[in-house]
Write a protein that binds this DNA or RNA. Structure first.
Lengths: 95, 95
DNA sequence: TAAATTGGTTTATATCATAAACCAATTTAT
DNA sequence: ATAAATTGGTTTATGATATAAACCAATTTA
């Protein structure tokens, strides 16, 4: 019991975890919203969103609004599962 | 409320967190015990213990037992505080 | 006395997080 | 009209980090 299960390295990152934490409670979120909430730089956020998308944890949709580019993110079922598993595993470390 | 407070980078590491998690429940622990429990390599563990010690989070004592080197670790009050704060901050991310 | 084991440390490497630099388009100021 | 600033990002560079691999000294076993 209570062994230290490995923590998904993709989620064990402050910014990516914060993003997932936000997305899990929302239908979708815009790039700028995530940037504000996480207080990250655009560059860092862009890179980390890419990684989450490549892992299949989030979906990224690009469109235009008021002639401006608009990036919208949402968590996937895979992402939800990964997040929940990460949290479960983490509990062994902090309880 | 529920802002993403920064996570102490020294604790936001799987192995170091596991070590702290073990030490917080014990008076002291031997190197080999930590190695077994965390399923880490000796090299990795050695490096991470060094970092925790340099941060003042743990105390490392070296002695001999049965003519063999014996490394014993214990958490410091500073370490306890840092761990507790880390856990508190982490909760914003996973709840 | 050679080989294996114990209990580690040091070094090398590959990955990661992050910031800095950049880019295209739009809006605002002159 | 055009230059400067802003928006909404992406790409690139770099320094830190985690980890494994190599190493070392002493002891024990074959």
């Amino acid at each position: 019991m209570s062994a230290f299960k490995p923590l998904d390295p993709l989620l064990h990152s402050q910014l990516r975890l914060a993003v997932m934490s936000l997305l899990i409670g929302l239908d979708e979120a815009e790039f700028t919203f995530l940037k504000e909430k996480t207080e990250s730089t655009a560059g860092n956020l862009s890179v980390q969103l890419d990684k989450l998308e490549k892992a299949g944890y989030i979906k990224i949709e690009k469109s235009f609004r008021d002639k401006r580019p608009l990036t919208t993110c949402s968590i996937t079922p895979m992402g939800v599962k990964a997040f929940e598993e990460y949290v479960e595993n983490l509990k062994n470390y902090i309880s």
